[in-house]
Design a protein around this nucleic acid. Sequence first.
DNA 1: AAGCCGGGGAG
DNA 2: CTCCCAGGCTT
Length: 301
Amino acid sequence: MPYYLRFVDAFPTVQDLAKAPEEQVLKLWQGLGYYSRARNLHATAKIVANNFDGQFPNTYKELKSLKGVGDYTASAIASFCFDAPEPVVDGNVYRVLSRYFGVDIPINSTKGIKYFKELAREVMDSGNIRDYNQGIMEFGAVQCAPKKPYCLLCPLQESCIAVKDGKVSELPLKLNKTKVKNRYFNYVIPIDPENNTILEQRTGKGIWQNLYQFPLVESDKNLKTEELKLLIQGNGQLPEYESLSLYNNETIVHKLSHQHLHTKFWILKTSYILEEGTSWKKIGDFPVPVLIADFIKTFKI
DNA sequence: AAGCCGGGGAG
DNA sequence: CTCCCAGGCTT
């Protein structure tokens, strides 16, 4: 709610969002993760403002053509906002349908995605699509929960196949475990005599696209001070240092679903004035990943 | 079809 | 600690 309220306060209309700089959008999104959603939302606002005269399209097909709007979101908007008879299939719906009908097709397989969408369409209440769609999702979230669902007091327990077969805890079936990759991050925080530092924007692919961070030295293992010193020798992006010291004695392990980031923060004191740098007072203006935000919070310059 | 993308909460 | 969670895009 705090994120939502700040967001709509900053961008009351689609035009406001469309004309905002991406940095402001990302700053308001900071901490939520999945930053591509913020970028897609921003891109879609521009399309709606510029190509649709500020009017959201009202059909599933047109909605789905918007960036970041896939099958679920297009169905949700079309049904909630325009009363279109489109069934929503989110994680909750997968759970309710797979259990109630006893379907063990993996929900993340091509076959499963198609099967559950068709099943959802068959059982939906077209004449009351808003309440139906929101109801089945809420039912999945509150009653037919992932763990410890309330089967004993469930109004559907007598006709639920999973209850009958004792397979509630096994459904829905999902394939593919994510394997975790270990990465070793060394953030080097330059501090000059005027308390300037250096922030860089992450570009290209991968995590935290377009967010900011301190100069990063990635390695294939944890580094000792001398090893880092060797690596940053002749590194054009870092100034020569008076001192280089490790800030966190314990390596910080920042865990994403698919990556464990073993992180060390190094304080690099320099006597150069970082003309192109960022004043420490202003670093709060930049959108940064939680890992960086947590460091900034604890570090006293 | 498989992989990638973040962070938080529950137990 | 470990386990679990979602929807869309890219490769």
